[in-house]
């Protein structure tokens, strides 16, 4: 069976207007200022797989997630979500909408559920929006089944979000996301607000659901160990650009980009290895990024070309890397 592309993102650009207020700008004759949160980004996700974006805060990974979800106005580029399932005769517009829609699991288990709604209403919201239930009884049954599917009980539907722990709330969030039967889920740091022992439960639930329902995930995280556990493919982002796209196994066995190497070196290790290379500097201000390769001020392999010319993604084996040093075989 040929691999189907579920999601295709082509040269996505998301700029935020960070200009000073109009009056200040006119008085001081300042130009408009843009923050290039996502700058010319392309990737595709194969059906049933997990594509992850990793990077430090401010690298634009969450903005990508929100743009793909349609929550963010994009400046330029194309996002195609090919959710229409072949075995489902999409006769009704509602059903087509539902199939093409994107669902999302959010970072904060507290802010992602309306505190004034009962859990059953929260989970039923997408069912109602896409008219997926025949009647009230059918809806109630679907909600009960969803709650059980994510490891809660049907009677939990009567409670309010504040009666649950962080991990349980994240389960509710997952039940809501699944209730409109999406094929594609965006997970924006779904476990970074949870305790480790609970994180494992939620990650396991997500992989189990992926296997059962054939879900495609766009997974966002800053935690490389979680990325390693969840992903098939990984994109490493730095200041709004992808610097390396690679199969998961390659990323950890054979990292190419100097930034990827640095990230890997920073992972706190339970073995307590002490021969870590020293890491210097911080992510620069994205409003005034460096010239050429954005990483050059922190890069030990930077040369003149890196300071002036922006590297593009080049194929190296299974990996695609945007680095002059790798291209020139210096690295």
């Amino acid at each position: 069976m040929p691999e189907q592309v579920a999601v295709q993102v082509d040269s996505l650009k998301v700029y935020f207007d960070v200009s000073p207020p109009l009056v200040t700008r006119l008085l001081n004759k300042l130009p408009r200022q843009y923050l290039k949160a996502v700058d010319d980004l392309s990737f595709s996700i194969t059906k049933g797989q997990t594509f992850s974006l990793v990077g430090e805060s401010g690298c634009g990974k969450s903005t990508v997630a929100r743009s793909v979800a349609g929550l963010c106005r994009i400046h330029d580029g194309q996002i195609t979500i090919n959710g229409t399932d072949a075995d489902l005769p999409a006769a009704r517009q509602d059903q087509r909408d539902a199939a093409e829609q994107v669902q999302m699991i959010f970072q904060s288990p507290y802010a992602s559920l309306n505190p004034r709604w009962r859990v059953r209403d929260i989970v039923a919201e997408p069912i109602r929006a896409f008219k997926l239930a025949r009647d009230k009884a059918d809806e109630r049954q679907q909600v009960a089944r969803l709650l059980e599917q994510v490891g809660l009980s049907a009677s939990d539907g009567e409670k309010y979000p504040h009666e649950f722990s962080g991990g349980q709330r994240q389960r509710i969030s997952i039940a809501r996301a699944l209730s409109s039967r999406p094929k594609f889920l965006i997970c924006d740091e779904p476990t970074s607000a949870l305790d480790v022992s609970v994180q494992a439960q939620i990650l396991n639930l997500m992989t189990q659901l992926q296997d059962e329902l054939g879900l495609t995930y766009l997974f966002i995280s800053h935690d490389l160990a979680v990325i390693d556990h969840m992903s098939d493919w990984v994109g490493v982002m730095y200041l709004g650009r992808i610097c390396e796209i690679t199969p998961k196994s390659e990323l950890f066995a054979n990292p190419r980009h100097p930034y990827t190497r640095m990230l890997l070196a920073t992972v706190p290790d339970l073995q307590g290895k002490s021969n870590r290379p020293t890491i210097t500097g911080e992510v620069p201000n994205p409003i005034t990024p460096p010239t050429g390769c954005y990483f050059h001020p922190r890069c030990p392999h930077a040369e003149d070309r890196c300071r002036s010319e922006r590297p593009t993604l080049q194929t190296h084996g299974p990996t695609r890397v945007a680095c002059h040093a790798v291209q020139e075989k210096r690295l």
Binding site: A200, A225, D228
Partner: peptide, 13 residues
């Protein structure tokens, strides 16, 4: 339950 790089488990304990 702490995920580790290179563990290659589908299900975490």
């Amino acid at each position: 339950s702490i995920p580790q790089i290179g563990q290659n488990l589908r299900t975490l304990p």
